[in-house]
Design a protein around this nucleic acid. Structure first.
Length: 428
RNA sequence: GCCCCCAUCGUCUAACGGUCAGGACACCACUCUUUCAAGGUGGGAACAGGAGUUCGAUUCUCCUUGGGGGCACCA
């Protein structure tokens, strides 16, 4: 039997991280067993979904590196089919008419299934009310539409959020009434905000687009999401997509809701940033630089990216720091830098003057720069830091950066000397 | 109210009857060092509670408590 799993988002114009994770689990499973990953879009007239809304979902999945195997199926396009099946149920006496709507008659008795993540879950038919499958205007209700579509799509595994557990017995009853074989159901736990409540907009960024926007790399997001509620066992943290596919299993899925930890996501993003070559980061950073009004040539920008990426947590960070290196107008003294200068303005100035004097005749590579500045410190009888830190401040406006010799190199000789001279002329 | 799910450091988790309960994020030291980050070393930090089962329970069963979800002519 071919495994066919599907992700079924509502086209709300917004791909929630919880949904994205469910999609990722479905996708990982499909790829793990060599099956197919399909999409079923839960659009209806009521949800007033648009092409634009659907686009956001598909783009989000693509951004995360998830691909699908067949054209997405749209619930809204299958109304005639839903009506046909509902009428059949009505004719067979398995459903009845009430106020013009068709209501499914829920048989008594146990309804249980072996959940892929929870194990056996059992409900009693008596506890579940008969439910409407076709409204009086003959449009289908979700619980009915999914079942008909999933049967027609030959879905073998339904992996979805925990919040669907109580829908499952209703759907199983429908499968039975329709004489269709049951898929494997699996319910993955929710993702909660820091307060333990369902992750929602008031917790801040909850859409994958938000994370893309603040400069999270898709690979980092994917890795982080995979580890939220799933574990391959052991101590693995950073994994490639292939490793995740190879290691994925339902047994590793947690039964407990997880809390979204932004700090860890940023840490993970930092890991990926450090490991990603500047060339790959360039297309992500360049547009940010443009937004900041910085234009630099590709080569200079690449140098700047390489210099700052290990100290960054997001591509936005990278862009901000690169901007300072590429464009003097982006330099702004921060509070710590001001304090540092204020300790002894005269010494700050004197040190810079001495540095400028030696730097003018220095060959512009990191080795030579370090040698000359260290020699200068020796000459002046001060610790190396006394020479480096004023330069760092004058060049970057802050007290934190890559090693100063590299900073000088990245900024470039002409621009660096200009900045140093400006700093000597006057703090402002 | 009824039904269902869940419960290991603050957070993400490992453990599948016998471990000094391990790792990661965060935090705190120390170290490295021209600053910071990274790295390295070390530290504090958890089995919700109570009954069983067992020679032995974090692990199996039941109860309590606590959290979450669902009970639409929404999806």
């Amino acid at each position: 039997m071919t495994v066919r799993v599907r992700f079924a988002p509502s086209p709300t114009g917004y791909l929630h991280v919880g949904g994205a994770r469910t999609a990722l689990f479905n996708w990982l499973y499909a790829r793990h067993v060599g099956g197919q990953f399909l999409l079923r879009i839960e659009d209806t007239d009521r949800a007033r979904s648009t092409e634009e809304h659907t686009r956001v979902i598909l783009d989000g999945l693509t951004w995360l590196g998830l691909d699908w195997d067949e054209e997405p199926v749209f619930q809204g396009a299958r109304v005639a089919r839903h009506q046909e099946i509902a009428d059949r149920l009505l004719a067979e006496g398995k459903a009845y008419l009430e106020d013009g709507a068709i209501r499914f008659r829920l048989p008594p008795g146990e309804i249980a299934w072996d959940d892929a993540v929870h194990g056996r879950i059992s409900f009693q038919g008596e506890d579940i009310k008969d439910f409407v499958i076709l409204r009086s205007d003959r449009t289908p209700i979700y619980n009915f539409g999914v079942v008909v579509d999933d049967i027609d799509m030959r879905i073998s595994h339904v992996l979805r959020g925990d919040d669907h557990i109580s829908n499952t017995p209703k759907q199983i009853a429908l499968y039975r009434a329709l004489g269709a074989p049951l898929p494997v159901f699996g319910h993955v736990p929710m993702i909660n905000g820091p307060d333990g409540k369902k992750l929602s907009k008031r917790h801040g960024a909850t859409a994958v687009g938000d994370y893309q926007h603040i400069g999270i790399l898709p690979a980092a997001m994917r890795n982080f999401l995979a580890l939220l509620g799933w574990s391959p066992g052991g101590d693995r943290e950073i994994m490639t997509q292939d490793e995740m596919i190879r290691l994925f299993s339902f047994e590793g899925i947690q039964q407990k809701a997880a809390i979204f930890d932004m700090t860890k996501l940023e840490w993970m993003n930092g890991q990926y940033l450090s490991a990603t070559p500047a060339e790959e980061l360039y297309p992500l950073v360049a547009p940010r630089l443009a937004e900041l009004g910085v234009r630099g040539d590709r080569e200079g920008t690449l140098k700047a990216i390489a210099a700052v990426k290990t100290r960054s947590r997001t591509t936005l960070d990278v862009a901000r720091q690169a901007a300072v290196r590429l464009d003097a107008t982006q330099v702004q003294l921060d509070d710590k830098a001001k304090q540092e200068i204020a300790k002894d303005p005269a010494a700050y100035k004197a040190s810079l003057e001495a540095s400028v004097a030696t730097l003018r005749g220095t060959e512009w590579n990191t080795t030579a720069l370090e040698q000359r500045l260290r020699a200068l410190a020796l000459e002046r009888g001060v610790a190396a830091g006394k020479v480096f830190q004023p330069i760092r401040i004058a060049l970057s406006g802050g007290t934190v950066s890559e090693p100063v010799n590299e900073l000088l190199y990245v900024v470039g000789k002409e621009a660096a000397l200009k900045r140093l001279e400006a700093a000597i002329r006057g703090p402002r």
